[in-house]
Amino acid sequence: MSKFVLKRIFLAILIILFGSFIVYAVIRALPTSYVETIARQRAQLPGSKSYAEWLEQLNALFRLDTDIFTGYMGWLSDAIKGNFGDSWAYNVPVTQKFKDVIWYSFALNIITFVFQTVIAIPLGITAARKQYSKTDYGITFFALLGISLPSFFLSTILKYIFCIKLGWFDLYGIVGRYHEQLDTFGKILDMTKHLILPVFVLTMLNVGGLMRFTRTNMLEVLNSDYIRTARAKGLPEKTVIHKHAFRNTLIPLVSYMSYLIPSMFSGSMITETLWQIPGIGYISFGAMTQGDIPFTMFYNVFLITLTQVSLLIADIMYAVVDPRVRVN
């Protein structure tokens, strides 16, 4: 097991390096006005160097004058020391900006995750138990609808109905106009109110996948011999489903959910952007479109690392829930 884990970790490091290099190479192709702006500002200070000199110096500082590989190696040597630099788009240290915004995303996604699990798993099981019934069709239809819904369209429709026509919610943002005047409890309520629609959108989009996954696995389990045996020996249907079938369905479910961990911190980029929730998704979307190399690099390395870690966890979890894997 430990040998396997070590091997996985080694591979993960390789993958992180490769992935971040690709991102670096692509974003270097994005011309950014950041350096020019700073150089122009500094050149205008009294007694300052000329614009060209500043530009040269800043380009050297941000390694924009080197080729992509050298530039990447320079970034990497800094990153290993924990120095990710300052964000160009937001003018604060990357890690600080990250700390400021990540909890919005985390809150949004963890709530979504709870709703998604609570809705998807029971429905998936029901659909599997009543295969080909009206309920099954309904659930399958609902699941496919969720998968097929474009997030921007669902968001726009919700905005149209609830924000514009009914005026119940704000169109954008995480806080209302009078947020600062509220007490702590009021602030939390205010934020919760602003999260309702984004959470609904995310739940609608994600619930379908989990539901279908649950249904497929449940069907597989329900058709296996030991369920037939359980039924044959006269166990009540409840016991068969909850004790024998559901527990076995958990194995693939746990691994599936491990894949969801990265999305806890990253997965809602489009939805956050649409609702302008200042979480990591929206902030990094802004950074990426503006060619903010330090922030983009940090965000993507964070994403890739998280994915690798979650894959590792999935493998380990698999061993935890399924004793058969542990033996091997």
């Binding site: 993958i15 992180i16 490769f18 992935g19 690709i22 991102v23 692509v26 974003i27 994005l30 980029m269 489009i270 990094s284 979307f285 990426m288 479109t289 983009t296 965000y299 993507n300 994403l303 890739i304 994915t307 690798q308």
Partner: peptide, 12 residues
């Protein structure tokens, strides 16, 4: 697979 899909699409 490690190349993050959405960031790359957005940056390109």
């Amino acid at each position: 697979n490690s190349i993050p899909y959405w960031p790359i699409m957005i940056i390109t």
